[in-house]
Amino acid sequence: MISTTITMDQFMLSIYQTIQMVSISLIIGSVLGIPLGILVVVTRPGGIIENKWVYGLLNPIINIVRSVPFIILLVAIIPLTKLIVQTSIGTSAAIVPLTIYIAPYIGRLVENSLLEVNPGIMEAAEAMGATPYQVIRYFLLPEAFGSLILSLTTATIGLIGATAMAGAVGAGGVGDMAIVYGYQRFDTFVIIATVVVLVVFVQVIQSLGNVLARKVRRG
């Protein structure tokens, strides 16, 4: 018989919390990060609406946020978190730093995906007299769609890793459970169970991303 200090309900709750944190911060992060990535691409030198001020502002911001380790970001922005969600502990308190962490990451990934688009396509768009909005809408995004899905897949997996640290503000989730019950209370079963859950999560998300990307690439 397995001996462990946690109940099935606790375990299911932690899985639920992880899914909740990942999905909410992924959605908000994408809403911020995708336009950010697009903006960086179109305003970069040689871009379709080249603008050194916008580019010169956004590019360093992405770099600065991306260079702060998540565990530090988590505590560094507690005042901001408090302001937004009225609390500095629990699941919803983790969503703010997770979003701030993932948005620039998504921005950078989106930028890379868009830069992969064949420059010839952009030239064709320009030759057709497309407006900047039309270039983005009808040329850039459709051509990069498969690659964008893979970028979001990578971002999601990055988020799962980050949620494990969100336990530091009492956010819960499987990562938190592994530390509190598995590590601090020497419950090997919890450690193994969490690792299995995380591996399954990552596998499922990556496979889903690959399938979707292949599907849109074939049209």
Partner: peptide, 28 residues
């Protein structure tokens, strides 16, 4: 931009959108 629409252009490497069908490419 309006003037460019009166000037068609074709390219050595075709520059077609790989993600769109022949119909959608021509429709663009």
């Amino acid at each position: 931009r309006a003037k460019k629409k009166q000037i068609g252009m074709i390219f050595q490497h075709f520059n077609l959108l790989e993600s769109k069908t022949v119909f959608d490419n021509v429709a663009l």
